[in-house]
Design a protein around this nucleic acid. Sequence first.
DNA 1: CGGCATGCTTCCCAAAAGTTAGTACCCACT
DNA 2: AGTGGGTACTAACTTTTGGGAAGCATGCCG
Lengths: 125, 125
Amino acid sequence: MAVSNPLRTFFPDRVFAAGCPSRTVLDHVMSKWGLLVLLALGDGEPLRWSELRRRAEGVSEKMLAQTLRTLVADGFVVRDARPVVPPHVEYSLTPRGLELAALLNPLMVWVVENAPDILEDAAAS
Amino acid sequence: MAVSNPLRTFFPDRVFAAGCPSRTVLDHVMSKWGLLVLLALGDGEPLRWSELRRRAEGVSEKMLAQTLRTLVADGFVVRDARPVVPPHVEYSLTPRGLELAALLNPLMVWVVENAPDILEDAAAS
DNA sequence: CGGCATGCTTCCCAAAAGTTAGTACCCACT
DNA sequence: AGTGGGTACTAACTTTTGGGAAGCATGCCG
């Protein structure tokens, strides 16, 4: 029954402590918009602000700015601003961001494949 | 540069549409507490309310109730309530929940391993 | 000179999350 | 007899967060 779980190496008592650093990182990375930005940049191609806005459909400018600032500070994303007018800014993943995106991708694929069934269940209940 | 990305099968234009069913599922599953509950139940062992509260340290009773209701409705978790006094309720993962937890685990392991470095970068900026 | 394009920032309000208190139920102890 | 405690929630209230729309800086083009 009990699956061998590598997490136990880190959490022998299976308690996820409130002050744990991983909590903070999880909040940044698994946030609604953080996730979408990482996935949008996930294939390594740099994207501009307006392009990110288009791909993470529904994101407000405020949240996109906030999300990008967090991801840049955490070292997942690099911001490359060229001092031209009109401004030209490109965002792309760092090696760390690429590692994370590689883990996020299969998850997203699973979610996309199963989402219709899941919502059907949710609607039926 | 561009990594072969299976997500393109589902999102040829790489746009994550606002109304897409997967968005709803992502919001449920990647939410702060939803994630912790899924990880806590991830090894297949059923847990009681109070035990879940202990493991997802910091969760309020309101949010735990709300999170569990969502996860049950989505078919990730089963709620098994025995009509005894004091009440005894057990929560465990469905097969679907186990599939998802299996994808979440490597992600969590990566986050735990890298969290200290990431926060160090964040603090330095 | 006035409009436009781009990448943000600021302000205000609605929605979500957190906090605290209360409920139902029966048992055990005083 | 009554008091308190353990369990799993729910309800009312407050604080935090997120969304929407507008503003700003800059220079080019008509």
